[in-house]
């Protein structure tokens, strides 16, 4: 089953077309990661899926229906979005921000229902934020804030989560923390997750499916063992990577790499030290 079908979309900004005639499908109940070098159009693609950008041609289908024909609030009940630069009003508390995840379900003047509270509490619990629920978000660290935003998306109660670089600006431990949380949500709750990641090893380790882009086109898509190959990485990033298997996931990861076409390796730092 496909969660999202992207068919022949053309997207761009006022003068420049970023992606053209792009088609790809996002599998249901899986973690899909979009990778590619800077400016390859991965962010444009995910924003189009999230309906932040509008496709000039083609369409995005959610469960077989074009999102342009759907009521935006109905989409919000099926798909939650975490933009790259989410930034909340300074004094908002964790509970307050997470409760906005219930916005698509609320009537004009109605207050929150028991079901709303149930979702909010669950979202706070599953992201491990119980002890922070009344804390202003401005007093929290970057990693904790990202958890709060993820909690808000979860309170939306959607089958699909779309995240644009959820680990950017986080240190190594917090990056892993966020990805493990998403992994848990996928495994336990069967959520379909689509995201853009910069770190290839993270992408490979945590994905069921990868989409690799370059210059607005999809170079290859498939499971990590098919995408993370020496040849593909050369095509996508112009690098020669030394691949091995991740001891945790078994998926391919790179140990180190150098730029394609440059054989002149610098002497290793260890050699240097011996000379001195």
């Amino acid at each position: 089953m496909n969660a999202i079908d992207i068919k022949d979309v053309k997207v761009g900004y006022t003068k420049r077309t970023v992606i053209d005639e792009l088609s790809v499908t996002i599998p249901e109940n899986k973690i899909t990661t979009i990778i590619g070098p800077n400016g390859c159009g991965k962010s444009t693609l995910i924003k189009t899926i999230a309906r932040i950008l509008k496709a000039e041609e083609g369409a995005i289908y959610l469960d077989g229906t074009s999102i342009q024909k759907m009521d935006t609030r109905e989409i919000a009940k099926q798909m939650a979005i975490l933009p790259q630069s989410a930034d909340s009003p300074a004094g908002l508390s964790v509970f307050e921000l997470v409760s906005y995840g219930r916005f698509p379900y609320r009537r004009r003047m109605g207050s929150m229902t028991a079901e709303d509270y149930e979702y909010i509490n669950w979202a706070i619990e599953v992201t491990g934020l119980q002890s922070f629920r009344d804390r202003p978000i401005s007093e929290m660290s970057g990693g904790q804030r990202q958890r709060v935003w993820i909690a808000m998306s979860l309170a939306q109660g959607t089958e699909i989560l779309v995240l644009d670089e959820p680990t950017t600006y986080l240190d190594l431990a917090h990056q892993l923390d966020v990805l493990m949380l998403l992994d848990k949500l996928n495994k336990l709750e069967k959520r379909t997750i689509v995201m853009v990641l910069h770190d290839l090893n993270h992408a490979s380790r945590f994905s069921d499916y990868m989409i690799a882009m370059r210059e607005g086109e999809i170079i290859t898509d498939g499971p990590p063992e098919e995408v993370m190959t020496k040849d593909n990485l050369r095509d996508i990033f112009n690098i020669e990577a030394d691949l091995t298997d991740c001891p945790y996931s078994g998926n391919p990861v790179y140990l180190s790499y150098h730029l394609s076409g440059s054989d002149d390796h610098l002497p290793s730092r260890n050699d240097d030290r011996e000379v001195m």
Partner: peptide, 20 residues
């Protein structure tokens, strides 16, 4: 007013929450 609150979370977040 409620829609303004949602907009105050940022344009993209508001779109994601189904705000017109």
């Amino acid at each position: 007013s409620r829609s303004i609150t949602i907009l105050s979370l940022g344009e993209e977040v508001a779109v994601g929450l189904g705000e017109r």
